[in-house]
Design a protein around this nucleic acid. Structure first.
Lengths: 215, 215
DNA sequence: TAGATTGTTAATCGATTAACAATC
DNA sequence: TAGATTGTTAATCGATTAACAATC
């Protein structure tokens, strides 16, 4: 790391994760050893200046005149994204969405370990999904040192789960329920609302169609 | 609408959708007829100036000294989000994630109509999910006038589906596969990558922990 | 009228882009 | 060396916040 006083915005982290995915794709295909900011710019549709600036925030990976070694770039970014350590996850709500998230997490070799999964449905408790036993939500306590809690329950149950997570001294909560949860400053919070995403798309189309009509 | 020359950013649409959800929550609970920008600010953790500015971009819904009528606010926003019309959706990929999205779309009374669902798995084709028959992907053509296509297939199949959607003159694509798809200018594109979201959270925790250690 | 909150403009903040010297 | 691309600084752009006159 270059300078710890610098504070990186959420936007930078989002792009770093994007770059990383892209770099891994190039490496997978490829014969190439190097890439450069304009190649990445073209693939990702991000300005090449911004890419260079983002990289320079986390280190000096480039060789002037040559570009960036894919390998060192990848390891530099992964270090920053915490991919050099294993994160312990807990997943609450084993419906279709919960199962989908679980499968995604297990599919690629990742640095996430889903240590515990929970549901409140009696019929599910004790059964196995992807080789993991579903526990009763009430078993959720702070003994398993979970880093990140993922909420995939219906909106009306989400708040209670979040509070249980907070009590267990979790570091972050990723909430897929369509409700804003309030968490203390010390807990990272991210909300992903599937329908909300579709609403935004629909809104933008509607607006552009109205504008077109008026032109 | 106030002024069609104004162009609203994606950020504004995201907040409008947020406000709408919040307003509906207040209406559901409540005895209240009115809200105001500082109440919404507190609930949503968005600056009250920004809320007033966002509202003023799409109309004049407030009464000075009183706040905003929940009812007129809701209908104003919903008009802007295209909630006064029905959007035709198609969903491709009926795995866990596809089923989850389908359930979410059908759960609340919404302005989305899932007109067709597809998969390429022979064992699924012809079966019903939520009362809808799963069709073979090859049946996807431009005859059903789909507005928004939702992709919930694995990454390596996503590109082909996107192209089929584009050929069918779709207006927008919402892609849940962890791969960037390129679409023509005329098609709205939104990508939601579940793991990417978790990566960002992990990255931000990792960074803050390193910073703390160095302090 | 007095009190409150909007609607809007100006000031600030932060993120992106352009430019270019440094250097591989 | 000449050519290319980085790393970084300055300029621009856009989004948020502060301030306050307008007005219910």
């Amino acid at each position: 790391m270059k300078d710890n006083s610098k504070s990186l915005s959420k936007l930078v982290f989002e792009r770093l994760s994007l770059y990383n995915r892209c770099i891994k794709n190039i490496m997978r295909e490829g014969e190439k050893e190097y890439t450069d900011s304009s190649e990445l710019s073209q693939i990702l549709d991000v300005d090449s200046s911004l890419i260079r600036r983002d990289f320079s925030l986390i280190g000096k990976f480039g060789k002037r005149g040559m570009g960036y070694s894919l390998d060192s770039l990848r390891s530099g970014i992964e270090g920053f994204l915490g991919k050099d350590r294993t994160w312990k996850l807990a997943l609450v709500g084993i419906g279709n969405l919960g199962k989908a998230v679980l499968q995604y997490l297990l599919k690629v070799e990742s640095n996430y370990e889903v240590v515990r999964i929970f549901d409140r449905d009696r019929r599910k408790i004790g059964k196995k999904i992807e080789d993991k036993v579903i526990e009763d939500i009430s078993e959720l306590d702070d003994r398993s040192q979970i880093d990140i809690g993922i909420i995939t329950v219906p909106a009306d149950e989400a708040k209670k789960i979040a509070n249980q997570f907070i009590d267990s001294k979790i570091k972050a909560i990723v909430n897929f329920a369509p409700i804003k949860l309030s968490v203390p400053e010390s807990v990272y919070y991210r909300e992903i609302d599937l329908i909300h995403e579709i609403d935004v798309v629909a809104g933008m189309i509607a607006f552009s169609e109205i504008k077109q009509k008026l032109d």
